[in-house]
């Protein structure tokens, strides 16, 4: 029986091994390579997607458990050619380096800010415990996130 779910707003049906990680479905079957296969054990966060509105590592989600779920990847996060406020802040603060961790960072921080509109520095850091960046040393990413907060407050 095919597994049916919504991917970036479209209904899809998959007839594949239900143990296949969502990550591989995204990358290999749908060409959605924004989610990166880095650690495949839930520690790095580079494959983070939204499932039913929650930011989770797609490497640890077998497709067979996602019947009826709503999956959004970084490609489906915003309309083509537009950026959300997290992405815009990262550009404005010039925080990107190699870039591999950023799609996951964006996914994690987008839902985090929805639930915590005015975080402090420590709260942002706690939210990023599962998103590793090897290039930037984090602090400028956090500055960028906090700039969103201060804009919201003002």
């Amino acid at each position: 029986m095919p597994i049916e779910l919504t991917l970036n707003g479209e209904s899809i049906a998959l007839d594949i091994d239900p143990r296949t990680p969502l990550l591989d479905v995204l990358r290999d079957r749908h060409g959605l390579t924004g989610a990166k296969a880095v650690c495949r054990e839930g520690f790095c966060g580079a494959c983070t997607v939204h499932i039913d509105g929650q930011a989770v590592p797609s490497c640890l989600r077998p497709i067979g458990l996602l019947q009826g779920c709503n999956v959004v990847t970084v490609e489906g996060l915003t309309a083509p050619g537009t950026l959300n406020r997290v992405q815009q802040a990262f550009i404005d603060h010039d925080v990107v380096q190699c870039g591999m961790c950023f799609p996951g960072m964006v996914m994690t921080l987008t839902t985090f800010l929805d639930g915590t509109p005015n975080p402090n520095r420590d709260e942002v850091k706690s939210a990023l415990v599962g998103n590793i960046c090897r290039c930037t040393g984090y602090e400028r990413i956090i500055d960028a996130v906090l700039s969103i907060r201060s804009e919201g407050v003002a």
Partner: peptide
């Protein structure tokens, strides 16, 4: 100057194709 990066937008929207993304 503090020139911003031209590759940031694609990297942030998941469109940058790294070598490891070319397995199809």
């Amino acid at each position: 100057m503090n020139l911003p990066r031209r590759d940031a937008l694609d990297k942030l929207t998941g469109r940058t194709r790294y070598t490891s993304d070319l397995g199809v």
